[in-house]
Amino acid sequence: MKPKRNPDVIWRHEQRREQQLLEAAERGEDISEGGTVILVVNGTMHQLNLLGGEIWRRCDGETELAAIVQEIGAEYEVAAEELEQDVREFLVDLQQRGWVTDA
């Protein structure tokens, strides 16, 4: 599977915010509810948390799911199997919302 963002979705990667969240995580804070990517879909705003943003940014229609898992796995403290399962579930969610398709 090569997930591809729906071109109708407007989005922005909030890099400064992401840096602040990473620093908060280092201090032991729970940042799972912190948004790093903002999406606007049909006039409604949504946010993706840190890992959601990591996945979303790689949904370019050219990157295989396995490569996405590998890239993210190299940066985060998580077992490959758990990460792959989470990425798959997240992408199913995004597909059901119509934000991502399989290129």
């Binding site: 990473l22 995580a25 799972s32 946010q47 959601g52 985060y76």
Partner: peptide, 15 residues
């Protein structure tokens, strides 16, 4: 290595 938290859509609201 960065700490891991599951990916999710965290909020929605009208612009």
């Amino acid at each position: 290595m960065k700490k891991y938290a599951k990916p999710r859509v965290i909020s929605s609201g009208n612009v």
